[in-house]
Amino acid sequence: MSAELQPENSDLEKLAVVTEEPFRSRVPLVAWFRTKWLNVAARWYIGPMQHQQNLFNEQLVRQLREYETRLIDLDRERVASTRTIAELKVRLQQTQRRADSLAQRVTELESAESDQEVS
């Protein structure tokens, strides 16, 4: 696989379009004859396949882009949710602290009350 086709370096949107490479030859007329022969013998066969492949590639790239967009959105939502949970955790601990303090105060009051009853 050539360097420019490595997925890491590739511009998927450009690579998705399959294009014909024109015939070339150093011998005069060879490329012209090969092109003519392709037009007669195979273009009717290759053309629709090329078209279908391009449609498929285009759809695939669009889908990939949509999925990556959705992943980014989900990532952002996850960060927001994680922060909300952390904020709630702090509030919960604050509430717990107050509840513990109140419980202790109630215990102290009850104990003082029972002391008074005894005396």
């Binding site: 890491e8 370096n9 590739s10 511009d11 998927l12 949107e13 450009k14 882009r65 990556e68 967009t69 992943l71 980014i72 990532d75 952002r76 960060v79």
Partner: peptide, 20 residues
């Protein structure tokens, strides 16, 4: 790329991946 996507958008990620 995940950080680029989070901070910017999918276009930035794809453009960075392609070297553009």
């Amino acid at each position: 790329r995940r950080e680029l996507g989070y901070a910017l958008d999918v276009t930035a990620v794809w453009a960075q991946r392609s070297g553009r």
